[in-house]
Design a protein around this nucleic acid. Structure first.
Lengths: 197, 197
DNA sequence: TTGATGTTAGCACGATCGTGCTACTGTCCT
DNA sequence: AGGACAGTAGCACGATCGTGCTAACATCAA
C-alpha cells in the first residue's frame, strides 16, 4: 500500500514548504497558491492533500510539534538524570536551523490563533506538553538528589518552563545567543541543586 | 494649533483599533478596511492618517512599545532598588488586559516581520531596551548589596530577560498564571541575593 | 463672503485570495 | 484488456486586498 505512504510523505513535504514560506516571507505570505509553488505543485494538486487552508496550517503546526517531540523522545534512554534533562530541554532551544524554524512556525501560526482556533488548541497542547516535560525533568532530578528537597516543584516548573521559552524566544531571533542560552539553562539547573535560604 | 494634536490623537485611536482587531480576530484580519471599520472611519479617512499599511502596522507596534515604556518610566523615582526593579519589570508582564494586549500585538506583528521589515527593527529595539532595563535593575541591586558579588551580571541579565519574557509569554495566554508569574519574578530576585556556590 | 487648506468620503483598478467544480492521467485489481 | 479510482491539473466565481485618484466638506484668514 505505497499510496497512503506517499500521501503522508507528500503532506510532510508540503508542511515543510509552509515552514520555509513562514520563515522567509512571514505567515502573511502563506496562501494555498504560494505554498503550492514553494512545494513545486499546482494549486489543484495541493488541494487534493489539503482541501482547506485551515487543515494546511494546522498540519504545519502539528508537524513542527511532532518533529520536536520526536527529538525530545530520542533522549529518553539517557541514564544520568541531569544529562537526560539537558539533552531533552536543549531540543526545545533553537540551537540550529531546524529547531529555529520550528520555533518561528509555532509562534507565527500562534499569531493566527483567533482566525483558525484549532491552532490555539494545538499550541495549548504543545505548551502543556513542554510544561509536563519540565516537571518530569525536575522530578527526576529531585529523585536523584540533585535538587534541594525544600524546593517547591510546581513553582520551579513554572520558572524552568518560562526560562526555557524565554531563552528560545531570544535565541530564535539572534543566533549569537545560542551559546548564552545553553549556558543559562545549565546554570539554572546547577542552581537548583543548592538549598534555598 | 489643535489640528495636529487631533491628528496624533486620531492616529492613536486608530492604532488602538488595530490592537483590538489583532486581539479579537488575529493579525490576519488586519486590513485597512477592517481597521477603518473598527475605528469608526471610512477607508479614505484612515488613509489620510496612514497612507500605507506598512505605516499603520509600524505605528501600532511602536504605540504598544511607547505605552509600555511610559509605564516603566513611571517607577523611576521609587527609592528602594528592589521595589523599583519589581515595579518596572512587572509593567512588562501581562498582569492586566492593557499589558496583555500590548504583548499580543508585539508578538503578532513580529510574526509579520519578513514582510514589513520595519517591524523587525522595531521589535529588535524593544527587545534591546528590555534587556537594558534588566541590566539596569541588576546593576542597581548589586550596588545596593542585594546581589551576591560573585554573580556575572551579563549572564544574570540574559537569564532575567529570558525569565521575564517567558513568564510574559505564558501568562499572556492564560490569565490564571498571572499570580504565578509575579511570584516567580520575586523568587528569582530573592535568589540573586544569595552567593553562588 | 470668499478663498485657501486640511480633512473626510468614496470610486476604480489590478492583484490575489479560498474554494467549488470539472477534466485528464496513470496505476492497480479483476 | 478493461474498468475503477486515487492523484494531478486547471478553470471560474465571488470576495477582499492595497493603493492611486478625485470629489465633497469643514474650518479659519483675510
Amino acid at each position: 500500500m505505497p499510496r497512503t505512504i506517499d500521501h503522508d510523505e507528500r503532506r510532510q513535504l508540503i508542511g515543510e514548504a509552509v515552514w520555509r514560506l513562514v520563515l522567509r516571507e512571514g505567515v502573511g505570505a502563506v496562501s494555498l497558491r504560494t505554498v503550492a509553488a514553494e512545494a513545486g505543485l499546482v494549486l489543484g494538486s495541493l488541494r487534493h492533500s489539503f482541501p482547506t487552508k485551515a487543515e494546511l496550517l494546522a498540519f504545519a503546526m502539528r508537524l513542527a510539534h511532532e518533529r520536536a517531540a520526536a527529538r525530545v523522545a530520542r533522549h529518553r534512554r539517557v541514564r544520568d538524570p541531569r544529562r537526560r534533562a539537558v539533552a531533552a530541554l536543549r531540543e526545545l532551544l533553537p540551537l540550529d536551523d531546524e529547531r529555529t524554524v520550528e520555533m518561528h512556525v509555532h509562534l507565527a501560526l500562534l499569531a493566527e490563533g483567533p482566525r483558525h482556533q484549532e491552532l490555539t488548541a494545538l499550541a495549548d497542547d504543545a505548551q502543556e506538553a513542554i510544561r509536563a516535560l519540565c516537571l518530569q525533568c525536575l522530578t527526576d532530578l529531585r529523585d536523584a538528589g540533585q535538587i534541594a528537597a525544600d524546593r517547591h516543584l510546581g513553582r520551579e516548573t513554572t520558572t524552568l518552563h518560562a526560562l526555557l521559552d524565554g531563552l528560545a524566544l531570544h535565541a530564535m531571533r539572534d543566533p549569537r545567543l545560542r551559546r548564552a542560552a545553553t549556558r543559562a539553562l545549565d546554570d539554572h539547573l546547577d542552581a537548583l541543586a543548592r538549598p534555598l535560604p
